[in-house]
């Protein structure tokens, strides 16, 4: 089914169709992950898993991660395969509409950022900037299921 869910991040409530994002990712997962040879580093999970993030920091981290994917990741993931590019476009546009909803929560002070989330997000950025742009973007895209599993 469509699997639209209402996500509760503290006072911030967001209707999100994770199933569409997941089915888009499932379609390209093997292809994208095969383009990432670096098994010893994770953008999202290194050094600590997202599952270690305190629940009070969840909304802010998710808001920042959606911005991160929209602003930094998807645009550097263009491939020679038109089918893959179309699926990436589908995921990117879905992220864009969710990013807006998270932004509204943020503006209404329902998605506050504490010290914990700032540190975690800085670590993610450091992991990202530790690689060249294309490798970092492809690796981040290949880790989308880590984000989705944690969100759900």
């Amino acid at each position: 089914t469509a699997g639209n869910k209402i996500f509760h991040f503290g006072p911030c409530r967001i209707a999100m169709s994770v199933t569409e994002i997941r089915s888009g990712f499932t379609a390209i997962k093997a292809n994208i992950q095969a383009r990432d040879p670096i098994k010893t580093l994770s953008i999202l999970s290194y050094p600590h898993s997202l599952h270690k993030v305190k629940s009070s920091d969840r909304c802010c981290i998710i808001h920042r991660l959606f911005n991160f994917y929209v602003d930094k990741v998807f645009k550097h993931c263009k491939t020679e395969d038109s089918y893959i590019n179309r699926k990436i476009s589908s995921i990117a546009n879905s992220f864009l509409s969710v990013k807006r909803k998270l932004g509204q929560c943020h503006e209404q002070n329902k998605c506050l950022c504490g010290q914990g989330s700032a540190e975690k997000f800085q670590q993610i950025l450091a992991n990202y900037e530790g690689l060249n742009v294309t490798s970092a973007a492809i690796k981040s895209l290949g880790e989308l299921d880590i984000l989705l599993d944690w969100m759900e």
Binding site: V70, S89, N93, L96
Partner: peptide
């Protein structure tokens, strides 16, 4: 062309 392509690519 999606909104993402218009605004970010």
């Amino acid at each position: 062309q999606g909104e993402y392509e218009r605004e970010h690519v």
